[in-house]
Amino acid sequence: MRRVGCLLLALAAAAALLTGCAPEEHEEIIFAMDTVMQLQAWGDGAEDALTRAVQRINELDRTLSVVNENSDIWAINHGQGAVEVSPDTLHLVELALELWRDTGGALNIAMYPVVRAWGFTTGEYRVVPEPERAELLEYTDLGRLELDEAAGTVTLPEGMELDLGSLGKGYAGDQVMDILRGSGVTSAIVNLGGNVQALGSQSDGSPWRVGIQDPEDESAYLAVLEISDLAVVTSGGYQRYFEEDGQTYWHIMDPATGAPADSGLISATAVGASGALCDGLSTALFVMGADAAADFWRGREDFEFVLVDQAGTIWVSEGLEDSFSLAQGYEDRTVEVVRR
């Protein structure tokens, strides 16, 4: 579903290009990490930098893929004992462990077997019954994962499988930003399948306008954030789901229950300087729910949030108060500003 949206976005961008845009705009649209990615950069050196950025994304895709038999993740999941991995993988597993601890387990990169049992990797969806869930959760205790920084190895306990899907796109975005910045590009925006990351501001100096999708209407956005030099990442139940007996089951699993997260939220957006962090946190906030997410945010300084609950209320952390506005047609929505 989300891919269709991205394709439409890409088509719209292509149409905008044809009808004439600033001459120094450069754009790449690729398919990687199981999603459509759009990269736009302005100015001298942008074309070269984008080419290298695309190479880097493809390299990370090969390294982090859970289905590619030559990837680090495949090696970790199917290997015996300590498996040597690339610095990228090592860094991400470290970050994932840190977030797992910080979020009280709300972000867990070992949920892959659970997600698979529910059918989200194959499309053969089924509601996993309680005893089976408990059994699957036994293999998700990240405290038992061994990481040897010096040797650059990761060791998984028997039965555990990792999937860095909740961090990979954000990390790729950070890498793209580094490459563009290093090449002297001062204005760029990339959309890696809904992970939006901006470098600097628009070429005319105004901030980027990033729309937050309406979880209940994929063709519309309910709010706009005006941002510069930030990552905006949204996790929503609308991105991948199936319905059975009138009940909706989405792909974001609560690591505490082994079932789709049922926190009252239908969308969670994290905004901050680091794409990888925001990627992981958007999932974690979705699992936590509005109250726990607000408490978690009060203990940190490195991100802001926008949450949408089932009643349609939008919760915005105070750091975004000035950059947040409701989109056309959504002026009536209740907005609660969460303060420290």
Partner: peptide, 9 residues
């Protein structure tokens, strides 16, 4: 016209 948005998240 409405500038719309630069990207959707």
């Amino acid at each position: 016209t409405d500038a719309g948005v630069d990207a959707l998240s």
